[in-house]
Amino acid sequence: MIGFEAISHHNGWVAAATGACIVFSGLITLSIIISQLHKLVALLDRPKTKVEVVSEEKPVQPQLPDCPTDVSLIITRFMPLIEELDPEFELAELYILAKKYHVPHPHLSIRSLIESGKLHPLGDGIFRYND
């Protein structure tokens, strides 16, 4: 027996079609799997233990003492600085000196001294200490 008759007799058409489909589906499945393999590897590469999230600590700000409302206390703090300056000085010089010696709340303190009349303005930003 030869020709198409022989092929049909031995179920050749079905065998060839089925075989081709199996090979294709097998290799397509394998190609899909290997195309996703790097994702699986990425999953495996994840660290097993949960990483403890350490929140970044904010830099500790030195707790500044409250701004004193007592003018005499402010004068006590500022007197050594004023003595370092000339009798007539620029306000900026006092401020810089206060910052240098970490005197708390220099702005507010200087303002309190001005309001209380202990610093007397001479004009053009020049001040003088009033006893």
Binding site: I2, F4, H10, G12, W13, A15, A17, G19, L27
Partner: peptide, 18 residues
């Protein structure tokens, strides 16, 4: 996979040749 089609084509040819 595509290149394996030669196998199945030849299978049919060989059956056809007896």
């Amino acid at each position: 996979a595509a290149a394996q089609m030669g196998v199945f084509f030849t299978y049919l040819s060989a059956l056809g040749l007896g």
